[in-house]
Design a protein around this nucleic acid. Structure first.
Lengths: 95, 95
DNA sequence: TAAATATTTAAACGAATGTCTAAATATTTA
DNA sequence: TAAATATTTAGACATTCGTTTAAATATTTA
């Protein structure tokens, strides 16, 4: 959980996730989207993978990345408690 | 947006948010929940406030904190793109 | 008004983070 | 097999982050 939220925290990593909504891509194509060195992107991809937000599949000399449902499910589950709160707010404590 | 994700990134701050699902509380009561100094909690509360995840209302010498819908709406909106990608079941409640 | 209570602000500091360049690993192609 | 391509790993470095103690601000109570 900790590592998943951490992965989502960085703006570049969030952009990578949004980019992958368009479909799976190899590391080079992902890196092209950003004005940042390939090693930096590689590092971000590693963190996203650790957070179960993306999957990596080796295909020849390429590594193809795609969104991973598992990390998003975790975040979604955490959010449910708040969704319920805003629908059924508990009375606030008066001090 | 950046500051909202940053606010959610820290585990103590997420615990504070979950604690506030139980209802609004003043800073002292919130601090009691954690084995951490009051200034640290105060700092966390400030970041949560900056991220529009909580509201602060001064009541005499106390400051009462409560969940703020606005920050959660922002994160939820970001999340929607992925929910659609994975076809998550739609919540009855629209955040 | 003085003391007690509630909370924040300030300053300091080690740990974690994001970035870079250079080097290493793996695969494909000539 | 050697060169080219794709990607990661390693090491370094400045910045940001989370924490603490001490001091400041605001409010209530005696």
């Amino acid at each position: 959980m900790e590592i998943t939220f951490k992965a989502i925290n960085d703006p570049t990593r969030r952009e990578i996730l949004v980019f992958l909504i368009g479909g799976a891509q190899n590391a080079g194509e992902i890196a092209k989207q950003f004005s940042m060195s390939k090693p930096s992107i590689s590092h971000h991809l590693d963190l996203l993978k650790q957070g179960n937000l993306i999957l990596a599949e080796k295909k020849g000399q390429y590594i193809i990345y795609s969104l991973n449902r598992s990390g998003f499910e975790l975040v979604h589950a955490w959010f449910q408690g708040f969704a319920q709160y805003f629908e059924f707010p508990k009375p606030k404590i008066r001090l």
